[in-house]
Design a protein around this nucleic acid. Sequence first.
DNA 1: CTGTTAGCGCTTTCAC
DNA 2: GTGAAAGCGCTAACAG
Lengths: 357, 357
Amino acid sequence: MQIASVSDRCYRLPMVDTSAKLNLIDVARAAGVSLATASRALSGAYGVAATTRARVLAAAEEMSYVASPEAARLAGGATGRVAVVVPHISRWFFGTMLEALDSVLREADLDVLLYHVGGLDDRREFFERLPARRKVDAVVVVAFPVEEVERQRLALMGVQIIAAGGQNAVYPYVCIDDAAAARQVMAHLLFLGHRRIAMIEAIDPDQPTRPSGRSSGYYAALREVGIEPDPDLVVTTDWGGEQGAQAMSRLLSIAHPPTAVYAHSDEVAIGAIRTIRRAGLRVPDDISIVGIDDHPLASLIDLTTVRQPVYEQGTTAAHLVLATLRGEVDVERAVVLATELVVRRSTAPPRPDRRTD
Amino acid sequence: MQIASVSDRCYRLPMVDTSAKLNLIDVARAAGVSLATASRALSGAYGVAATTRARVLAAAEEMSYVASPEAARLAGGATGRVAVVVPHISRWFFGTMLEALDSVLREADLDVLLYHVGGLDDRREFFERLPARRKVDAVVVVAFPVEEVERQRLALMGVQIIAAGGQNAVYPYVCIDDAAAARQVMAHLLFLGHRRIAMIEAIDPDQPTRPSGRSSGYYAALREVGIEPDPDLVVTTDWGGEQGAQAMSRLLSIAHPPTAVYAHSDEVAIGAIRTIRRAGLRVPDDISIVGIDDHPLASLIDLTTVRQPVYEQGTTAAHLVLATLRGEVDVERAVVLATELVVRRSTAPPRPDRRTD
DNA sequence: CTGTTAGCGCTTTCAC
DNA sequence: GTGAAAGCGCTAACAG
């Protein structure tokens, strides 16, 4: 992590001459057109002859002209910025999503304004402040519910909303089918012969969220095979490894502990594994465990999981943003990406002496 | 991860009346002063009577006035934005750093512009583009070297640079002492009686970096106790778990494998552990292993490591930004934060039959 | 299809 | 200590 001046770089960086700033007017002159025409040509508006536009574009390219977002915005144009709103940053899911969003938005020459909105106060602050001065052209909310009032407020300012990793009927979104993911977990566990399957349900205490499909899928799968859900086998906690470990302790403290555990995320699952091991039990011999995500460390832990395409959700959401910004009317409003079971070595049939059926 | 309109929220969001936008002139009128005075008062410049300033501030507060960054910048002021440049986003270290930076910068009413600069092309793009139009007031580079030319280019535009998680003599920085961290690892391992200590050295292939203190500390510690470094015991790889696993394979393929392994990061260490286990060996009985970071999952894996205060590095760097922006001259230009060894259960004395001394 | 013109909301000289 | 006025660089009506 050392930082030092590296002298043997492979590119030259021309020194800027601050005294000679390059404005649109310069490009216009170089192309032999008026300022207005240059503006139209660059912004891709209609009503410019193809040859003229080409000339302007060439001149701009030649002089490596970069427009001033400030001036553009002030004059009523777009800001060239999009806000990405995330409830967490350091967790893998959110970081990966950010990386994906950033990658395609930057490609489209849009700047990314990061908004970390943890609790309710941040959230309120965000939705009160942002619209006040149109700082962005669109906002992407990552796994984060937006109220209708909030949406309308933004819409009033001409700011679009797109959701990544979550769903809503009102604005475009891309997500996975959480209930289907839960069912993939359950199908695997049931097929292996497990009957006492616990669930470590994760919820974010700071975010008001509807009951997740990851939970409903569990109950649905159980009911379908005629197993009555046992409340003792469901424990709710925050996302995160330590919390998973604690939740697992509770599951080990009941009269008839489960033979298999379904955790809402890999991180939670990894925490649960620690508790199991500390109890002197083995995975998967004594207890099977499955997570959701396919976190990079899951493969290193040999954790069976359901993979969700996080990066792809991000890029897809970003493309939704671009399409919306372009004013495309026939935008695909809902994209649901497929998940898949990844079988590794944290699952096995239950020990014969522990089978309950 | 479901997103839905939540109706029972605990705050009211007033609908914006887009037709009545609030400008500085309105605040000025309300305070009974001229536009110029209002501007001066708000920007905290000298030459305004204390009472006048108070009146303006009150009016602004009352009307919950928010300045337009666009107009401010256009007129020669600050942008109210700072760029954060990171080579990765989804890795824990960088996400945590971002979270910390964001937290204090937002507190100071600055917006965070995220720049993911992966390879050389991105980097070039960044340093060519950003200065062209002053989009930000300062840039924070996270674990990322900046060339002198690049720095000067930014300085010319009045943009400050601050480094987080890396060091440089020219601009303010905050980091840890990598060499010291390495020595903490080595002291622990040597004290336990290990002599054949391997190092899995991690480097980012996309970033031109000076040899890390994490490596030099290893060699220094070895030499100090009179152990001749064995080239076979050092393997270099990319950061990341899979890479750590592969590196460990190589260490297991030499004539005399190590009794202990020092990995440059916890993620690398976790990968290495998988390889060790798959080889039928046990940690720490057969091989001890130590990482650096204290990644949240490290405690779940029971990994001995050297903790570095990532979040604190971020907040400190952000405060450096604020001080610099405030024009403070006597800014602490270099902050080096302490690291500490966290002993868990991945280290133990070497097996007597494997000791080589 | 292209050029002219009037601001966008603020900061900053300048006078007073 | 305060006010008046001149832009910052661009877009969006308008004319032509």
